[in-house]
């Protein structure tokens, strides 16, 4: 039995009268790819921001990497990585300078930064580009580099907030190869997306509609339950029923 790396109970976030997240309850198991699926405005980003410590919950319990999200935020931060839909590397720095900076703020030693960046650049096949400014790198590559930098400090979990926004399907596929490599290293991946092809890649999925989790299972089980062949279909059915009930 794998242990839970994220445990959330009745997590609620309100902005004034608006309930962005309503009583979320779920677990993420160590080593899995956990997908957070939902339309824009369904509350995915709000949830991921709370899990990362960027935003405080209104109520509910939350445990990340074995630490309490209210009292042990500093310990959580050391054990997670984060990449947002907005691009998260510095445009005016070179690849190497970005790596050195992020390694530095995560407290990696100089030699560790050097070894890991060499390993990473070799794996991506861009050793010769390490002194190129990020702004001169094609967009598809930027995302891959940003992801590799986000897991440079070998976090237990990496949070990806719509990491492949605005990227073509081929590059998206390549990006997911990197995510599988991260899983092989024992890193848990928590990803939000609204691309249905990406949903298929996840081990387990939670579907969000209007701030609530309306379904949580593996893609196969969900398809079976709703008697449809594609995730897209499942999603549309769920979104409709969610809107009716609310």
């Amino acid at each position: 039995m794998e242990k839970d790396i994220i445990r959330v109970r009745n997590l609620t976030k309100k902005f004034g009268d608006f309930v962005a997240n309503d009583q979320l309850t779920f677990e993420v198991k160590q080593g899995e790819i956990f997908g957070f699926l939902g339309a824009n405005g369904a509350g995915k980003t709000t949830a991921i921001r709370m899990l990362c410590g960027l935003s405080k919950p209104t109520s509910g319990e939350m445990e990340v990497a074995g630490f309490d999200a209210y009292t042990q935020t500093e310990l959580i931060k050391k054990n997670i990585g984060y990449m947002s839909q907005k691009f998260s590397l510095y445009d005016d720095l070179t690849i190497w300078e970005n790596i050195r900076f992020f390694g530095g703020i995560y407290g990696l030693s100089r030699s560790a930064i050097r070894d890991r960046s060499k390993e990473m650049l070799t794996r991506l096949g861009i050793v010769n580009l390490s002194n190129r400014l990020i702004r001169d790198i094609p967009p598809g590559w930027k995302q891959k580099i940003a992801f590799s930098v986000a897991i440079l400090h070998k976090p237990q979990i990496v949070f990806l907030d719509e990491p492949t926004g605005g990227v073509d399907p081929v590059t998206r596929r390549q990006f997911w190869d990197l995510i599988y490599e991260a899983i092989d290293q024992g890193i848990t991946v928590f990803v939000t997306t609204h691309y249905m092809d990406e949903a298929e890649y996840c081990h387990r999925l939670s579907m969000m509609v209007n701030g609530r989790i309306v379904a949580l299972d593996s893609p196969e089980a969900l398809k079976q339950r709703f008697g449809s062949s594609s995730m897209n279909d499942v999603f549309v059915q769920l979104a409709r029923s969610g809107e009716k009930s609310s």
Binding site: K77, Y82, S88
Partner: peptide, 14 residues
């Protein structure tokens, strides 16, 4: 604006 502030705030830097 660039969204890098979030990355900084998620990092162990306070």
């Amino acid at each position: 604006e660039m969204g890098t502030m979030e990355v900084l705030l998620v990092s162990p830097l306070n």
